[in-house]
Design a protein around this nucleic acid. Structure first.
Length: 371
RNA sequence: CCAGCGGUAGCAAAGCGGUUAUGCAAUGGUCUGUAAAACCAUCCUAGGUAGGUUCGACUCCUACCCGCUGGA
């Protein structure tokens, strides 16, 4: 038996910093991780973040970012940064409000924005991302809506492939212009579409590999109508990806889903869950007394703590003893419940810091396993 | 003692002679490449007390109790 081929161990930034894989990058969509500043993020041991090309294009606009020579200086974040292409907004904004017709082979027309006249194109997405100077650039993909039938899923695959070629070409062009070599250029990520249809996912994966990328993303919506994660898609993309490819689960996921995906070879994740849940009073808590005793391989290794119950108003315990974040080391459940009740912004900050530390501990545990 | 106004659910606060007020609180739930520090659901015999009118009263009438304001 030949030794099992292993995937990349590190994510390299354009400044040649090495970030140990697997990683979770929370979403700082608009160049801010809601309620936190960069120093807060560092305190959670979060190695990188995700920003969004489409949102930053609208606000503050690329000229402002260029004044700072990139998003890293703009938000004073010196660690990993991935830029999402704006593909997700094709589903969440364009198709939702403008219908299927808002997307053509040329690009996307977004309604209800100040840029209604201009078309958001694959070229533009890459150009903006290169100006952001992020560590990974993601191709613009045509998002498969959760309800897409085979025909529609097929169309999004075709368009995703078409756009992937255009994006790759634009990427190479800009790299040449800026004299970026293999060492200081960002990763380029292709995105696999195809809805729930495994043959389309396979086809899309193979065609993207033929074009050539540094990694592939699990695109589209990863959950079925009952909210169950589709691991078959994760398997088939991994199966047909070269072993030196980075595998990135876009918008994934719950802690247990991340553990399962890591087992299938996936290495990079981002998701709004820890940050949005924090603002919505859902805190992730390990079912353990201390960080050392956390066992991410036990069936239910975590639960939710929701500090809006009357019984917590006088609870002097910390949120979790298996956590070393600001909230858990300095404050009680009672205080957090109080802050949420009076709707003070500090509640969101402390809860976000906690949830991000939960995720970074999860990733540290997973990193330790593969050593 | 007189006059005016008022008394509605844990709290606040409306309308109405018949049919869900509503908000807060409480309780349960949702959230997956962020139009979300948001949203959804539930909330029990609510009518100060005792009578009266009426087919039917939280609503109209009478008396009483309590509160606020003004007056003697």
């Amino acid at each position: 038996m030949p030794p099992k081929p292993t995937r990349k161990k590190y994510f390299k930034t354009i400044k040649s910093k090495k970030i140990l894989l697997p990683v979770f990058f929370p979403d700082a969509t608009r160049a801010v991780l809601k309620t936190l500043d960069s120093k807060d993020i560092e305190s959670t041991h979060t190695p990188g973040i995700l920003v969004n090309t489409y949102h930053l294009h609208n606000n503050p606009g690329i000229q402002t970012i260029k004044l700072h020579k990139g998003i890293s200086n703009f938000m004073s974040w010196s660690h990993g940064i991935i830029s999402d292409s704006g593909g997700f907004q094709i589903m969440s904004l364009a198709k939702k409000f403008g219908g299927e017709n808002s997307v053509t082979d040329k690009g996307v027309k977004f309604k209800q924005t100040k840029n209604t006249d201009t078309l958001f194109t694959p070229q533009k997405s890459i150009q903006i991302q290169m100006s952001l100077k992020t560590d990974m650039v993601v191709v613009l993909d045509d998002f498969t809506t959760p309800t897409a039938n085979y025909q529609k899923a097929k169309e999004t695959v075709d368009r995703t492939i078409l756009w992937a070629k255009i994006c790759k070409k634009e990427f190479e062009k800009i790299c040449k212009q800026q004299k970026l070599n293999k060492k200081n250029r960002p990763y380029l990520l292709g995105v696999v579409q195809g809805g729930e249809y495994l043959d389309l996912r396979k086809e899309c994966t193979q065609k993207l590999v033929k074009i050539g990328f540094d990694g592939l993303g699990y695109g589209g919506w990863p959950l079925d109508k009952d909210g169950q994660f589709n691991y078959d898609i994760a398997k088939i993309i991994a199966k047909y990806s070269p072993k030196n490819y980075l595998l990135y689960g876009l918008g994934i996921g719950k802690p247990d889903e991340i553990v399962n995906c890591v087992d299938l070879g996936w290495q990079i994740f981002d998701c709004v869950l820890p940050t949005r849940d924090a603002r919505h009073k859902r805190l992730y808590v390990y079912n353990a007394d201390s960080i050392n005793k956390i066992n991410i391989r036990q069936e239910k290794f975590y639960s939710y703590f929701v500090p809006n119950k009357e019984k917590y108003y006088r609870d002097t315990k910390p949120v979790s003893t298996a956590c070393d974040c600001l909230l858990c080391t300095k404050y009680t459940r009672s205080y957090l419940a109080h802050l949420f009740k009076i709707k003070d912004m500090t509640a969101g900050r402390l809860a976000t810091i906690h949830n991000l530390r939960f995720y970074s501990i999860l990733m540290e545990k997973l990193q330790n396993e593969s050593r």
